[in-house]
């Protein structure tokens, strides 16, 4: 439970830069279609999927090479993969 998840926290898909100060952000790889984006942390898995408009049932969220549950708080230093699990056959 971090202090960052209070009411008005907004996730921007592009980090806002204030003059020379560039915020670090976590790198997120989304598969199918392949896409690499940066999202500023901290954010919960659940929140991240919602912001990207992704159905939780169709994806797994992997940090490093570990699965994480939807209440996990992701940090700027994390490397995240959002893997599509739906196949077309």
């Amino acid at each position: 439970m971090t202090a960052a998840s209070n009411g008005s926290s907004t996730v921007h898909c592009k980090p806002a830069s204030h003059g020379l100060m560039i915020r670090p952000a976590m790198k997120v790889l989304v598969t199918n279609p392949h896409q690499e984006i940066e999202v500023p942390g901290p954010t919960r898995v659940q929140q991240l999927l919602k912001r990207l408009d992704l159905t939780p049932e169709a994806y797994l969220v992997i940090r490093g090479d570990e699965l994480v549950t939807d209440d996990t708080v992701l940090e700027d230093s994390d490397s995240i993969e959002i893997r599509s699990v739906i196949s077309g056959g």
């Binding site: 199918n32 169709a58 797994l60 699965l67 893997r83 699990v85 739906i86």
Partner: peptide, 23 residues
């Protein structure tokens, strides 16, 4: 599908994530 993919990740089954282009 999600449960099966989770099993694959947990047990380090290295599968092809990309789909057949015909799908």
């Amino acid at each position: 599908e999600r449960e099966i993919a989770a099993y694959a990740v947990i047990h380090q089954i290295d599968y092809i994530v990309d789909e057949c282009p015909m799908a």
